[in-house]
């Protein structure tokens, strides 16, 4: 009897803690969305009201009028999609080259690549800034995309997956008159599409949320991405918190939607790769 009630007690304690944690986790998101739908005076009401008395969906259009957020949004989509696609192609080619094909010095080169993982990206921004400006790429999409076309970490990860495919499959394909190029796209890629789509999603999230580098290399409205537009809007919008929260929601909600659809795959990907966003 006593054992049972002790167990019930600890179970309720677990639920209590988990619920508290969940509320703490979700509250900022919830508050962001609710604020973004409130009227100007309601926002600064004390004590605050949870739900808006009138749902101000027009805050979003007002925010988009106040700043070119729509353009930023489109820019972000374009950069994210292009960057992720190119990264995936370059990474796939390299992972295949380093796993399946042989060339002189392959393992040495791969070792050097792995060593570059130790370099913090923040350290490279100064010199890369100089490079980009020398290339005349300042304030272009190329500046946002090209430096991230090769991800050493994802090459490493994908190479591990490629190496798990049995050699005999490659030999069978060779005998079946299948070229290396065709083998990569017709056999390796379809077999590893799960891993590749995980890499694509994780990369897309990182690209969507990128901040420091885009802040440095873009300055015109037509090239800026949403994260930069958001911090700029923060200084401009001042105390219009409902508009600021609407702008923040525009950056956050697409990712949340994607996450809700694909959270299993995303979590599995994080577990496998162990990378911190």
């Amino acid at each position: 009897m006593r054992y049972k009630s002790a167990k019930a007690l600890s179970k309720s304690l677990i639920y209590l803690v988990l619920t508290l944690g969940a509320v703490t986790t979700i509250l900022p998101f919830l508050w962001m969305i609710l604020t973004s739908l409130k009227g100007g005076t309601e926002v600064i009401l004390m004590p605050p009201r949870l739900f808006p008395s009138v749902w101000h969906f027009d805050n979003y259009s007002r925010a988009m009028e106040a700043a070119p957020l729509a353009t930023y949004f489109v820019n972000t989509v374009v950069v994210t999609v292009t960057s992720t696609s190119l990264m995936l192609i370059v990474t796939t080619l390299a992972a295949f080259g380093f796993s399946r094909l042989k060339f002189p010095g392959r393992d040495v080169v791969f070792g050097i690549l792995l060593a570059t993982l130790m370099i913090p990206g923040e350290m490279l921004i100064i010199t890369n800034f100089v490079t980009i400006s020398r290339l005349g790429w300042m304030d272009t999409r190329a500046a946002l995309i090209v430096p991230f076309m090769a991800s050493v970490f994802y090459i490493y990860l994908l190479r591990q997956f490629f190496r798990k495919v049995p050699d005999t499959l490659y030999y069978a394909a060779k005998v079946d008159a299948c070229s290396d190029w065709r083998y990569l796209w017709k056999v390796m890629v379809p077999i590893n599409k799960q891993a590749m789509s995980t890499i694509a999603i994780l990369n897309a999230i990182a690209c969507w949320n990128a901040f420091l580098w885009p802040l440095m290399v873009t300055n015109s409205e037509t090239k800026r991405v949403l994260s930069i537009g958001l911090v700029q809007f923060q200084t401009e919008a001042g105390t219009d918190y409902e508009l600021l929260m609407a702008a923040a929601s525009m950056l956050v909600l697409p990712i949340i939607l994607m996450y809700l659809v694909m959270h299993k795959q995303i979590i599995k990907g994080v577990t496998q790769s162990g990378i911190k966003g």
């Binding site: 986790t25 900022p28 998101f29 508050w31 923040a248 990712i255 994607m258 996450y259």
Partner: peptide
């Protein structure tokens, strides 16, 4: 729910926290 902050933008959530930390409201 617990994994949600992992995928969301630091910048956006920083701004949201700025609002949560607001002295008056």
């Amino acid at each position: 729910v617990y994994f949600l902050p992992y995928v969301t933008s630091v910048v956006a959530m920083g701004i949201v926290f700025g609002w949560l930390f607001h002295s008056n409201y």
